[in-house]
Design a protein around this nucleic acid. Structure first.
Lengths: 352, 352
DNA sequence: CTGAAAGCGCTTACAG
DNA sequence: CTGAAAGCGCTTACAG
């Protein structure tokens, strides 16, 4: 292992002080009025010795790490990995690096990740928050670290958010199904107090009422996060194997729910959309490949990601400005609410 | 923004030196023989003031960041996001944090990421290398940073790798197709000198020869990485629209190729497996959802990820030991080659 | 135009 | 049992 070379090594090599090396390598030779020849010599030495600055040292000095933390439920879920990818690109454009953590919908893991990231002095934090993390979010907010919630949020917290209009999304989905002649829609959702999910359910119920559709007491069925496979199997079984009053269509509240639900439908050799109409939230390659491509609610992940990074950057630059001007911290909170798009495909053609 | 509190603040608050605080908070009170009461007072103060150590400072001192860098082609690709997820979990078990970058198969981006990660003093690097990055890998190796290549590799480089037996995988796939009576197999692959892809092709060709199958000069068709959508459309068009000698089955060399290829098949209303047999590399939710679930070569992403982290940890602990003993660095390179599993499903039932 | 020095927040060998 | 001090690699105000 070759020892890493430092600014000190460079300084010795050229025969100047470390200060000069630092100025030159940060292109501040003008401000520091460094001699031309010295500049050239330092530059050459840096190249020759393949000098790589130690960003850890710089961070300690500057108090900035140029790192953004991203906490999602599960980075292997397409929805989140798509978002992560765009966030990575946007961050990189601004010279920020991304560190990623998966909370698995566990408040405990979420707390661990938040702590780790804060101790690592991240400059900003983007979170898709999990159940029971309201106090964690509040605590982050109190630290003053730029923060944006994506996808999910807490309405009572005065924190930046980027999300879709979930109520509207569900409403539109039902409207669409109704328009196609479906009469007995069931929604498959998660059992959780998370507001984004509550709103999806509320929009669904409101639409049922307005459109005078209903599907009895089973209109919304809920799965846990922990035992999603078992729960969906059970729920879909109960609904699909009904002798009477079987739903003629489904609204799935996430891509994971849809994927598992569709498996149950296929297992029973029921045909979409002839026997059952289907609309799902989120995207999934699987939706394209189902024999009857699934109509879905596009959350436009790339917009969510871009807006989130933009909000982080905005906060970062206002902090910088305030530090310079020694002004008090002003705190402007934004809520970016994106209009959901219903991407209509084959899975809910005219019902029977 | 509340000022972060440091070890110095704690020391002042309790009325001791920073040294004691550091010892206590690192559970080294015994080695340092700190007084019992002092220990208690320091612990309480730390809790009261909600002290969070600055890991950047610790890293600067220790030279270790407890960070692992992961560079893949694209984190939004299921194959890589699955791997990333397991690596995250394994790293976390060892108290390491993950930073992730996507190279987009570009040697330039790869270099930028490598540089950034090295400057950030990562303790280990896991890379799925891109074309023309052989020299980059060599340079990383020279720095002495623990390194593991996954999925792809360079045979001439003396660097740790974790990968499947690609030759064998293709061979098995063709064997399977042949066994099901398919007689004219085409492989859809990437045009790239990357060895893992070359071997997939070589295994394919060898199997064709051994099994006396052939599909003329079009047995292997190659797409670029850059224009994959356009290329696949063109290639599949050329093969599928043939008047004579149309392939009766396909081996797709990655999940992305398969997904696009299947779209072309569907577009032409050709039926899998009646008209065409299909086997693909990698997993994809889409494979489960195709009306005829796709037979695929399972790369067992979780094993790849776990072995990769294990190799990093092994290097890390041997470095530590050597530092302590002031021994010379010994350099043991491992190649973990995982046996591919063919997961047989519907997409290549008995051919006609 | 250039150098010496302080300091970011920690850790740790050393002295007492 | 405890404190003063050096040092990790950088940046930057200050003095000359």
């Amino acid at each position: 292992m070759k020892k890493k070379i430092s600014i000190k090594d460079l300084a010795k090599h050229v025969g100047v002080s470390t200060a000069l090396v630092s100025y030159v390598l940060n292109n501040k030779e003008k401000e520091a009025r460094v001699g031309k020849e010295t500049v050239v010599k330092i530059r050459e030495a840096a190249k020759e010795l393949n000098y790589q600055p130690n960003l850890i040292a710089r961070s300690l000095k500057s108090g900035k790490t140029r790192t953004i933390g991203l906490i999602v439920a599960d980075i292997s879920n397409t929805f989140f990995s798509n978002i992560a990818r765009i966030i990575e690109d946007e961050a990189s454009l601004n010279n920020y690096t991304l560190i990623i953590g998966s909370s698995d919908e566990s408040a405990e893991k979420s707390q661990t990740l938040i702590n780790t990231f804060l101790k690592r002095q991240i400059d900003g934090l983007i979170i898709a928050p999990t159940v029971n993390t309201e106090s964690q979010i509040k605590a982050v907010k109190k630290t003053g670290v730029p923060l944006v919630l994506i996808d999910r949020y807490y309405p009572d917290l005065d924190v930046n958010t980027v999300r879709i209009n979930n109520f509207e999304a569900s409403y539109k989905a039902v409207e669409h199904l109704a328009g196609k002649g479906f009469k007995r829609v069931s929604m498959i959702a998660y059992k959780t107090p998370l507001p984004h999910m509550m709103e999806r359910k509320a929009g669904f119920l409101e639409a049922l009422k307005d459109l005078k559709i209903h599907s009895g007491e089973d209109s919304i069925m809920e799965s846990s996060y922990e035992n999603i496979e078992r729960d969906i199997e059970q729920i879909m079984g109960r609904l699909l194997d009904k002798k009477e009053g079987r739903p003629d269509s489904f609204l799935f509240a996430t891509n994971s729910l849809a994927v598992l639900g569709l498996k149950e439908i296929v297992k029973r050799k029921l045909i979409v959309p002839d026997d059952l109409g289907v609309v799902a939230f989120d995207e999934s390659e699987a939706f394209d490949f189902f024999y009857s491509p699934i109509t879905y609610i596009d959350q436009t992940t790339s917009r969510i990601a871009k807006e989130a990074v933009k909000l982080i950057m905005k906060q970062l630059s206002s902090i910088e400005k305030e530090e310079k001007d020694e002004k008090e911290r002003t705190d402007i909170v934004s809520h970016i609410i994106i209009d959901p798009k219903l991407v209509v495909r084959e899975s809910c053609r005219e019902g029977k």
